[in-house]
Design a protein around this nucleic acid. Structure first.
Lengths: 206, 206
DNA sequence: TGTACATCAGTGAACGCGCGTTCACTGATGTAC
DNA sequence: TGTACATCAGTGAACGCGCGTTCACTGATGTAC
């Protein structure tokens, strides 16, 4: 690795860190090319030697956020045996992560790619990794259900929990108030699991 | 009502209709003062005699959307007796409304007021009206639960359903695919209801 | 009914602001001999 | 090792675009006599 390549890597790391700080403090809309360049001690034009455009910077930050989220969820579920408890612990960890990283987490969902521009697959892969945290316990919980069915259920369960947390943290009028959030998330997961177990239980097929 | 007042009312109606059309076609970001003025045959400056600013126009459209949604939900639940079926029908109606009015419905949640600016209470009231569609069946379903508890459950159930639909219609990677959306929403509502009934059932208190 | 006047709706050019990206230029870095 | 040269990272002024809101002016509407 040449001297220049080393500097590049250092600059990219600094850029991502700075962008993350800014997004955490001011949200996606607060990220400006000029500020970002100034913050990492590069001229405005130099920014575009490090990343192709601001979108790329945002994607890098998003990837970091997803990775950190993944770690949080992984930690949360260790030490739990029963699948339902694992699912509850995962949901609560998601809740706490979103709360502690509110704007970064929001940015994950606010950010829409321009039309026709697909998101890079390394990013997509990280997103899908998250499902392991739900899919695995669900497999234990519903051994009788078909895999594709369980995949759908994973998505539904994730989306439902996500919805409660997202509206709650936005403090929308129709949302669960912040103080009751964790309790309601737990209640939701338990209720869904109970309902699903009753329906798909140990039985085969369907 | 003087001639001028009549014209004002007409202009306001035209403005809301035009703004609604634009938002439906191009989203919130597509709404521009100049286009809106041109569309209703008023000069740019004249726009600000009809509404104070663009935000006001957006709020008007939002109110209309909420009202239409309210009607859809009301219609959907008529003819259903059992509370669970009413909840399912309501959730499915919500799903279909969101699908059929995607950008308008998104605008309802995208739009954030400037900091310190509360949303007008006529708007808040309309939002809360929506809860009747959930709260009423839930009261029948869980006669034993305390009212405040039920209020929380209404919010949780709403948010959960909303989450599945929102991610699904955005076609996010982690979401339920569009084609399976209605089925999964129904499944979610039934599972939650089953879970809740098992927990709070006819029993008293808690 | 007719006339003079006041009010205020309507106009659109101009203001003020913000911002992502480019590009001709410079100077530091690395290479070849 | 030393020198001449090529490459390309770095610079920041300028480009190009977009947009909400204001304001001095005009002309239509309604009123008072």
């Amino acid at each position: 690795m040449t001297k220049i390549e080393v500097r590049r890597a250092t600059q990219l790391r600094a850029l991502i860190a700075a962008a993350e700080r800014t997004i955490a403090e001011q949200g996606l809309a607060g990220l400006k090319a000029r500020d970002l360049a100034a913050e990492i001690g590069v001229s405005l034009g130099g920014l575009y030697n490090i990343v192709g455009d601001l979108d790329e910077a945002i994607l890098h930050v998003g990837a970091r956020t997803l990775t950190r989220l993944d770690q949080s969820l992984a930690e949360a579920a260790t030490g739990e045996d029963r699948p339902i408890e694992r699912l509850v612990a995962t949901a609560l960890a998601y809740c706490r992560f979103a709360d502690a990283n509110l704007t970064l987490w929001r940015a994950l969902f606010e950010h829409r790619m321009g039309p026709g521009v697909a998101l890079p697959e390394w990013h997509a892969a990280t997103q899908l990794d998250l499902f392991a945290h739900i899919a695995a316990p669900l497999r234990e919980l519903l051994p009788g259900a078909k895999p594709e069915r369980r995949a759908l259920l994973s998505r539904t369960l994730f989306s439902a929990v996500h919805g409660v947390i997202a509206l709650g943290l936005e403090e929308k009028l129709v949302a669960v108030p912040r103080g009751k959030l964790e309790a309601q998330v737990e209640l939701l997961v338990r209720a869904v699991c109970a309902g699903l177990a009753a329906k798909f239980g140990g039985e085969a097929g369907n």
